[in-house]
Amino acid sequence: MDADEQLRSSFGAAALAYAEHRPDYAPAAVRWALEPAPGSRVLDLGAGTGKLSGSLLAVGADVVAVEPDEEMLAELRRGLPGVRALNGDAEGIPLPDASVDAVVAGNAMHWFDMAVAGPEMARVSAVGGVLAGLWNVLDDRVEWVAGLARVAGSAAIGPRDTPDAWRGETAALHAGAAAWFSSPELAEFPHGHTRTADSLVATLATRAGMLVMREEKRTAALGGIRDYLASRPETAEGEFTLPMLTCVLRLRRS
């Protein structure tokens, strides 16, 4: 198994923690992602434990979820029993042609092989439909959040987990879908995640880079994050809001 595949397949072992600790998505971002779609049939692709599916339901979408990892899929089915949830991936979507008005992916599109997934996403999309990727990123314009990103390192704060990094890393993601979809639009929406120091450490522990670490290295890395949070007045005691943005890449089916 190569390094990318190891990261991509790491989440199942932490499915319960992922469901408990990962944030949902800013409602304004979800609404904007769907705005040009002709109807409410929405595919949540690479749906994980259903974080984005829940946000889609909240804005009135008719959701079908597709997820390749059986443990993540089991958590989705447990948490959202009313959602049709299928085993499958972006490179082989188990849906008929032109069957959805929007294809969306929450913190997942960067795992897709877009050369294969692009045609598949176009195939299942109705003409005029939407393709949108949403990512929750840390708002490192806030000083203590920038410090957290430095202390946590690349294993916990990945290559698209801050706004500037997201813009750079996402710029070419649509290339595999360019023959079927319009030029991309980007937007960013304020968001926040209520945490304590313990629950923020638990959230960062669900990042792929942390999940594939050796146990002793992971323990040391999380200990450093915990020490930093204890040293900051914003995070040392009780609940606080982690400043975030939900960033959206949106295209329209030609």
Rank of each mutant, 00 (worst) to 15 (best):
V42T: 14
L43H: 01
D44G: 10
G46L: 03
G46E: 08
G48L: 11
T49Q: 14
T49L: 14
G50P: 10
K51N: 12
K51S: 04
L52K: 05
S55H: 11
L57F: 13
A58M: 09
A58Y: 11
V59P: 11
G60T: 09
G60P: 10
A61Y: 01
A61I: 00
D62L: 07
D62K: 09
V63W: 02
V63A: 07
V63H: 05
V63F: 06
V64S: 02
A65R: 01
A65K: 02
E67A: 13
D69Q: 03
E70W: 03
E71S: 14
E71A: 15
M72D: 11
L73K: 03
A74V: 03
E75H: 06
G79K: 06
P81M: 14
G82I: 10
G82W: 08
R84Q: 12
L86F: 03
N87I: 04
N87V: 08
G88D: 05
G88A: 02
G88Q: 02
G88S: 04
D89T: 05
E91R: 01
G92V: 00
G92Y: 00
I93W: 00
P94E: 04
P94L: 03
L95G: 03
P96E: 10
P96W: 07
P96T: 05
D97C: 04
D97Y: 06
S99F: 01
S99T: 02
V100N: 06
